[in-house]
Design a protein around this nucleic acid. Structure first.
Lengths: 339, 339
DNA sequence: TTGTACGCGTTATCAG
DNA sequence: CTGATAACGCGTACAA
């Protein structure tokens, strides 16, 4: 029973050739309605299933796309993948998942594997940006659409879907200023990654536009982590002039900061306003809900998928740089008027 | 530049046959060290990449496994997938993602697609259990390993990795009883799905073992949803003898219940204890952290992957039913002694 | 409308 | 050790 039925088996049974069977199965016009129906019937009766592999080998299209993300068990990336899958699945494409775990070597390995698997496209978020881009070029050389989302590598001819992180940082900081904050701290990540650098630049610009001097001591580079966020806040509060507001590039670090503030008896948002980034699900569930920047990951995934489909349909090379608008979601952690 | 180099191109260049090239590439012993090295060199020089499709067609092994989940943007399923990917990737397997969106029709469609794609295995969590299992049988008929995780369909010869939901429900309820709760309500899901039924049965058994009579009015079937959880609590509190504890099969519904309790001025855990299920990330982030049952999804994914690998290596049929132990994570929402 | 013949890229078998 | 050939399952010019 383990034997798979092929178009040959069907052909033999009906005393016709495999070619005719193939035609019947592929809506080829060059076939009579009678034989077509006959073939479809017996195909169903024999539990025939198309072998996508053989088709792919023949046609050069595998109808598989590779998606590379740092990790899949993060709400942000999982939502993006959902967006991609939702958008591509109606067109018959399957999504192959790869994780880099933030390791550059794994990223290169993943691209190798995907190329070997003859994927029709690669949609990815890079690990770091200060690396050689040989592996990206290998994808492009093969004429396989490469699309970056969220974290992009700056290179000619490659499309990307990102959000305006500068704008996000600006909005977050402006909001804190509007709430009356005079001394605004900032948690940032590695500036080797554009998204963190841009959020920082937005923060900086907002301060400048509002006549607030930048205090380097208020800027702390930490990983996205609750404990790290709490620890950093502890040191901030020891300063001669401690801050009265925080824009964190990570919701997790923001949460840690809030926990530390609370443990020191500092009232949020009355005495200290906090804004995070990413709009992680938990930010809205908290009793003291956390203001954050939404990146609409679902939409980001859908857009990336659409760009891929466009590139598949257009033979000529196109480069699209789609930049989504971030959305400030104001919640309790920063809203003084409601407190 | 878009042309892909094949072993034929290499062969032509070196005036040897493709067979020899193939041997060099596959560590075949029947080849001289000299030619082997020569082939490997020129292969690298010509940017040759193995065509996994052709290999798969030839060998009958695609090194792809299909993973079917209700949705990917849920921490639980995303973690399972991570576990699967982490475990399988070192063995050269790729993971193809499919979502059912809880629709049975989509589940059937997904299985079709995966079979067409010649996957080497199918790892899945079913949508509902009261359906015909034709599509499962089609997988088995083809001798393709089928492994259920979390939500299984009861059928002979199919392996599964689940957690002991009965035990989880029992532990949760027992814990509430230990905290002094006398009237324990229960939020459940559709009993067509075993996991909800089993949690309910565990709840029931715990009550019985402790001499507490079951009150049918305390049992409410709702979807996993914050608003639904709040609404249900509202009606529970209107009863002549309102409950003083809740075991919810969903963390989200549990959160809604807590919100409603708070809005009515009922102190948690002092006057009312709440236990959820799934150990969603947000449960531990809350100021009033929520007691929950951890299902170790990462491990569940890894186990499912291991079972798959075993089945691939053993030619004979094996059926494994792995049942993981749930872990009660006690937090503030139910811990009176600390309150 | 249908059959014939070939190729997609690879590997296994059989000679040499 | 290497070459020639067939086969995996399918689609498609070309011929009939």
């Amino acid at each position: 029973m383990g034997k798979k039925t092929t178009i040959y088996d069907i052909a033999k049974k009906l005393n016709i050739t495999a070619a005719t069977v193939s035609r019947a199965l592929n809506n080829n016009p060059k076939i009579s309605a009678a034989t077509k129906e006959l073939v479809l019937e017996t195909a169903a009766k024999m539990n025939y299933e198309q072998n996508k592999l053989a088709q792919a080998l023949k046609s050069g299209k595998s109808y598989n796309v590779g998606v590379i993300v740092p990790r899949i068990d993060s709400n942000f990336f999982a939502s993006i993948i959902r967006g991609i899958e939702d958008e591509l699945s109606p067109f018959g494409y399957q999504v192959i998942i790869c994780q880099t775990h933030e390791e550059n070597a794994k990223e290169i390995e993943n691209i190798d594997t995907l190329l070997n698997a003859q994927v029709d496209g690669v949609l990815m978020s890079i690990t770091k940006s200060n690396i050689e881009s040989n592996h990206f070029n290998r994808v492009i050389k093969k004429n396989i659409p490469l699309i970056f989302f969220d974290r992009r590598h700056n290179m000619e001819g490659v499309s990307s879907v990102t959000i305006d992180d500068f704008e996000g940082g600006y909005q977050a900081t402006k909001h804190l200023i509007n709430q009356g904050c005079k001394h605004i701290a900032h948690y940032t990540g590695s500036h080797n990654i554009d998204i963190f650098k841009d959020r920082y630049l937005g923060y900086k610009q907002a301060l400048e536009d509002n006549g607030i001097e930048l205090n380097e001591d208020y800027i702390i580079q930490i990983k996205s982590d609750i404990t790290k966020g709490a620890k950093a806040m502890k040191s901030l509060l020891k300063m001669k002039t401690p801050p009265d507001g925080l824009f964190s590039s990570s919701d997790f670090s923001a949460l840690g900061a809030i926990q530390e503030l609370k443990s020191q008896g500092i009232k949020v948002p009355k005495d200290f306003c906090v804004v995070g980034f990413s709009n992680e699900p938990f930010t809205k569930f908290m009793e003291l809900s956390i203001t954050s920047i939404d990146q609409s990951p679902l939409e980001m995934g859908k857009m990336a998928a659409q760009v891929f489909l466009e590139q598949m349909n257009n033979k000529f090379k196109i480069e699209k740089r789609i930049i989504l608008k971030p959305k400030l979601i104001i919640r309790k952690s920063s809203l003084k008027s409601d407190a």
